[in-house]
Simulated assay, not measured.
Amino acid sequence: MLVSIPGPPILPGELTKIDDVFKETLRERELSRQSGEATALAARLIELYQNGVQDVVALRALAKLF
């Protein structure tokens, strides 16, 4: 399923930052990458990033709240 996400494109280096936070959060929560929770987390991290939360520390903190 293709989902259109409004906002500026995310460049490869930026995607790496998001992916690092994503993987770290999955490890902390002991979640499978294929779980619905992981999918929702990934979407939320991308949304946060595109809305201006581009600092890794801030992304980590907000991922813990999600």
Score class of each variant (00 low, 15 high):
64 K>W: 06
40 A>R: 11
30 E>Y: 08
37 E>I: 04
24 E>F: 11
19 D>T: 12
15 L>H: 07
59 L>R: 01
40 A>V: 11
26 L>S: 00
33 R>L: 05
39 T>C: 03
46 I>F: 03
58 A>D: 04
11 L>Q: 08
57 V>W: 01
33 R>H: 09
14 E>H: 15
23 K>E: 12
1 M>F: 12
37 E>W: 11
16 T>C: 04
45 L>N: 05
30 E>F: 03
61 A>Y: 05
4 S>N: 12
29 R>P: 02
2 L>N: 04
50 Q>S: 15
42 A>S: 13
42 A>Y: 15
19 D>E: 15
63 A>F: 12
20 D>I: 15
31 L>Y: 01
12 P>I: 09
44 R>P: 08
37 E>M: 04
60 R>F: 13
16 T>V: 13
7 G>L: 10
7 G>F: 10
62 L>Y: 10
63 A>W: 06
16 T>W: 15
54 Q>D: 10
58 A>C: 03
46 I>R: 00
6 P>R: 12
1 M>V: 09
13 G>I: 02
42 A>N: 08
44 R>H: 09
22 F>W: 05
32 S>N: 04
34 Q>L: 05
66 F>E: 03
41 L>I: 09
12 P>D: 06
47 E>V: 14
43 A>K: 12
5 I>G: 06
34 Q>S: 09
7 G>N: 03
45 L>Y: 10
42 A>H: 10
36 G>E: 10
8 P>S: 12
15 L>A: 08
57 V>D: 08
5 I>F: 14
10 I>F: 10
46 I>S: 00
22 F>T: 00
61 A>F: 05
17 K>L: 14
41 L>T: 02
31 L>C: 03
64 K>V: 03
46 I>E: 01
46 I>L: 02
10 I>R: 02
40 A>W: 08
6 P>S: 08
57 V>H: 02
46 I>N: 00
47 E>M: 13
59 L>A: 00
46 I>H: 00
20 D>V: 08
16 T>S: 11
24 E>L: 13
8 P>C: 07
7 G>Q: 03
26 L>P: 00
20 D>C: 06
53 V>S: 07
26 L>Q: 00
15 L>E: 05
53 V>Y: 15
2 L>Y: 09
54 Q>M: 11
22 F>K: 00
14 E>C: 06
39 T>V: 15
22 F>H: 01
6 P>L: 12
2 L>I: 15
5 I>T: 15
1 M>E: 07
50 Q>T: 11
14 E>I: 11
